[in-house]
Write a protein that binds this DNA or RNA. Sequence first.
DNA 1: GAAAGTGCTGACCGATCGGTCAGCTATTCT
DNA 2: AGAATAGCTGACCGATCGGTCAGCACTTTC
Lengths: 182, 182
Amino acid sequence: MSTQDELRVIALAEFTSAGYSATSLQRIAELAGVSKSSVLYHFTSKEQLLEAAISPAIDQMETVLAPLETIGSLGDRQRFLEDFVDFLLMYRLEVNMFINQGPSLVDVPVIERGSALVVRLAQFFSQNSQSVEENMRFGIALGGAAYMLCTASTYGLEFPADETRAALISIMSELLAPISTR
Amino acid sequence: MSTQDELRVIALAEFTSAGYSATSLQRIAELAGVSKSSVLYHFTSKEQLLEAAISPAIDQMETVLAPLETIGSLGDRQRFLEDFVDFLLMYRLEVNMFINQGPSLVDVPVIERGSALVVRLAQFFSQNSQSVEENMRFGIALGGAAYMLCTASTYGLEFPADETRAALISIMSELLAPISTR
DNA sequence: GAAAGTGCTGACCGATCGGTCAGCTATTCT
DNA sequence: AGAATAGCTGACCGATCGGTCAGCACTTTC
């Protein structure tokens, strides 16, 4: 792995666990075994390092959300949900960071891009219902999943990957099912 | 409201929205219309200001969790859940901060106290089941509720208080119901 | 073999951080 | 009236922050 890739991976892990503003370039450099100057050679600023760390996840979310407006049958919906859960599992660090720290990182372009996607997703899941509960079910599913996938390990909870996937799909299906099928 | 109380309220709001480490004492002082020195007169350090800001919430959580081990009937359980939801609503800022930034604030005593309470709560809701899904339902309910109560406003969502309470109780009851009743 | 480019470094910069301290003002206590 | 206390302040401190820059070693290109 190139130094640049290594820095991106380390930065993502630190940004997620300690927080963006609490993570110094110096610390990232030390963890990577290079100098701070080297970090700023590969990335022109701390903010650009953040962009590089999470933009692949936002790109992938864009791809996963592409067929959103064409979902028709319940089968379509189930397939989309599974793809979305796979996305959450694959990019759990990025998602957690976006969910937890996104609101304090407005004006970072990639964060705004992600926010727009979340709004689009929320609109889909509540388009046939303006009820408070319906909107809250979506919020709890999204925020809860992001929380589970990262923060849970704080309490020493570690789950097998396949079981995690199955459980997540099951719970989110339940939370996000159309009213008519509940 | 005394200057001290005002500082605590402002600090809590800023810590929650911008993050603990991203919030400077200077900024808190400016928002309160006093000098930075004045902040450090009322609170001996930034960390102690954090303690003062969230310890009332942790105290209240301790009170709410007190009857946890004596819960017997489904009625007990329902009453506890309602009390817990009321606690979440009352201390939404503190809870959000604890959930989102707690893991990066270990070694702060009040955070550790809160973590112990969450562990105790998790054990209750999964004591009769070590299944992955059961544990995840708890995590999603807790993390999701915390997310909804604060971050959702980022996306311009604002719900009436009473509807929020009812919906939250309904959703969390569903997520945390004993397996036997599902 | 000179020139150009890549990866990386230490020295250094201004700004800001959390925190200390002496001292000011106004109120309260004796 | 005088002493003590509470509330608050500006000046200042060392440390650390993100970021700049000249220059080093090495490889590739011409």
